[in-house]
Write a protein that binds this DNA or RNA. Structure first.
Lengths: 199, 199
DNA sequence: TATTGTTATACTCTATAACTATA
DNA sequence: TATAGTTATAGAGTATAACAATA
């Protein structure tokens, strides 16, 4: 199934002495091929590449919905976000993971999964990729030989710093049509949207 | 590949007299199984089920980004949106398609694909599902025997009306913490976000 | 030759469930 | 028995490319 599952030899056979001493395999490359150009509906997003708001089309209720306006804006920004990180082979989930690991070192995989809101199995794949890129390292978790303790490598810190600059610039561009005050208003309104359901 | 590609017999062999007189096959069921409960990271969304904002976690830059606030809000709303349509087996892309077809009858498949921002092949699958649900019909396109003309069936109109009510209610709930004025402000700010890139 | 709808195929992302080694 | 990480498998969504019928 995996394009490189074929002959990839056991990489790091003998590890320092923690967890599974697993035979890490190579992770694949979410944005390497991308023969088309656009990203939104392609590999990176999966959201459904909605809505350039085609002229002379009646969008009906859709145009009255906050949710739809949100979605539209989010898709536009998301595309650009992906592009701004493409040069480092960093996808949005990877970026989030790097930031979280950076600010909360020594998380375990399960904790990372929980924070990112994904399944553990997904976190494994994510960390596999980041580890192969030499940005993140699995370290033995003190006191629990089942677990890993995730940290950024020096290269990871450097890359994250550069990527963060790009992201911040991207975000500034996204909001560039708004004043500082308006941006603050927007954030505060967004935070008050769809209050977490009680049930 | 398709779970029900096995024995599904040719449905409508002889059609009225347009397009391919194709042998339509059954479409699958995006939200029928859903053994878990939550939708966000599951089948419906694909966005990555981010971010319940776990306490005692440092989110670093993420908390300063408009894009991230947007994403967060969008995911929360999206989950709820999916749930509010689940009883009709209508997913967000299906809802959009129904609305678009309703407001712009007699679109061709290719036009629908363009409006929705998806590939033609995806539109085929989408319409397959809606047709099988008896909500949409392919009619011969006058003047072009290659093409179909998409219309809502009576059942499609009824279902769309009910679903629209649910969606509107959902949207009202999503914005319920905001005043009317604030909602208007939010929409206007969103519309000004990430202006379509010139290039 | 171009276009419409279709089909086949592939790839990404995510999830669940079973498995292992620890606890 | 429960938990951490892993692996296998499956399902939804999208895309590209090739094809038949028609323009």
């Amino acid at each position: 199934m995996n394009p490189d599952a074929s002959g990839a030899p056991p990489a790091t056979a003998g590890k320092t002495g923690s967890a599974r001493a697993a035979t890490r395999r190579k992770a694949r490359d979410p944005l390497a091929p991308d023969p088309a150009g656009a990203q939104a509906g392609g590999a990176g997003s999966a959201e459904g590449g909605f809505d350039p708001h085609v002229p002379n089309v009646d969008y009906g209720v859709l145009d009255n919905l906050i949710g739809y306006a949100l979605r539209r804006a989010q898709i536009r920004i998301y595309e650009d976000f992906v592009l701004s990180l493409a040069q480092w082979q960093i996808t949005p989930p990877r970026f989030s993971a790097l930031v979280i690991i950076s600010r909360n070192p020594h998380l375990k995989l399960t904790e990372l999964a929980h924070i990112l809101g994904i399944a553990r199995s997904g976190a494994v794949l994510l960390v596999d990729a980041l580890e192969e890129m030499k940005l993140v390292a699995r370290r033995p978790a003190p006191g629990d030989r089942r677990a890993y303790s995730l940290v950024l490598t020096p290269a990871g810190r450097r890359t994250l710093e550069a990527a963060t600059q790009a992201v911040v610039a991207h975000d500034a561009h996204a909001g560039s049509a708004l004043t500082e005050t308006e941006q603050a208003t927007l954030k505060s309104l967004l935070a008050r949207l769809a209050p977490p359901r009680a049930g």
